[in-house]
């Protein structure tokens, strides 16, 4: 299985996916540095305003980071099965004396570890810049929980993408996954809009239901919202403050874990039975 994992890393590196992402990330981090410097520069004494501005900076940073990690996970793995089968790459591999489950798990680990490593570096860079310009919580427990929630998006999207790749064509799965992630992102937006709009309670309840349902499609964006909440408010807080909308609950986090196990399991089951 180690061969499959290292072949996956080699593929992502040689196809320059990570290089392109890294170059654009460096550019973004330079801009982020400038934004952090600008926004935090004038505030000194007012603690409440300092916190508000720090949260705003973090929200901006992780808005970008969430998208980059999600698209890297989706576009790195969307054609892993159907795409390789359409090209004819997979056929010669699957006739080797290697159980199909080993190939599937090897690919999954390969994508999750490499994109996870990228996400870890991005997370650290954003926190470092934010800390320089606006200070940061010193609760390392909260930071660790935030990191785990941020990284959680990667297995969710890779599992869903590999499952989709057993069902749809390469391009079809790319479109499917982008739409799915877009829909769950929209769910988060609906939640935020609901919290801002001065509407009646029953309208709020309907919007909340729509937002939650959309978020459940792929819980990656929901986890990132929860991550931002923990990072800005602390894991003990239950009331959102300046982040907009209710953060996804503990149940949502458990649902996310079940989602990964389910998507991974169904994908593996389908792959083992698939004709090539």
């Amino acid at each position: 299985m180690n061969m499959i994992i290292s072949a996956t890393w080699k593929e992502m590196i040689r196809r320059k996916m990570l290089l392109i992402a890294a170059v654009l990330t460096v550019l973004f981090l330079a801009v982020y540095w400038f934004i952090g410097d600008t926004v935090s520069g004038e505030v000194h004494g007012d603690l409440l305003m300092q916190v508000a501005r720090r949260n705003a900076i973090l929200s901006l940073g992780f808005f970008f980071a969430g998208f980059v990690v999600a698209f890297l996970a989706i576009f790195g793995s969307f054609s892993v099965i159907s795409g390789e089968a359409e090209q004819g790459i997979l056929q010669s591999v699957l006739t080797r004396p290697l159980p199909r489950w080993k190939w599937y798990i090897g690919r999954w680990i390969g994508y999750v570890t490499l994109i996870g490593a990228y996400a870890l570096l991005l997370f650290a860079a954003l926190l470092w810049i934010t800390n320089i310009h606006a200070g940061l919580t010193r609760d390392y427990g909260d930071i660790l929980v935030s990191l785990l929630l941020f990284l959680g998006a990667v297995p969710i999207l890779v599992s869903a993408s590999m499952l989709g790749s057993t069902l749809f064509s390469g391009i079809g799965n790319g479109v499917f996954m982008t739409m799915l992630y877009g829909a769950s992102w929209l769910g988060g937006m609906v939640e935020k809009v609901r919290s801002i709009l001065p509407v009646e309670e029953n309208v709020q309840a309907t919007l909340s239901r729509i937002g939650t349902l959309l978020s459940l499609l792929t819980p990656a964006d929901g986890l990132q919202r929860r991550m931002l909440f923990v990072l800005t408010q602390g894991s003990d807080e239950r009331i959102p403050f300046l982040t907009g909308g209710n953060p996804p609950s503990d149940t949502f986090v458990i649902y996310s874990a079940i989602f990964v196990v389910f998507a991974f399991g169904v994908g593996l089951w389908l792959f083992k039975r698939k004709d090539f």
């Binding site: 072949a7 593929e11 040689r14 196809r15 090209q87 004819g88 790459i89 056929q91």
Partner: peptide, 8 residues
């Protein structure tokens, strides 16, 4: 249909 990873 024979193809091999073009990055190798």
């Amino acid at each position: 249909l024979y193809r091999y990873p073009e990055w190798l």
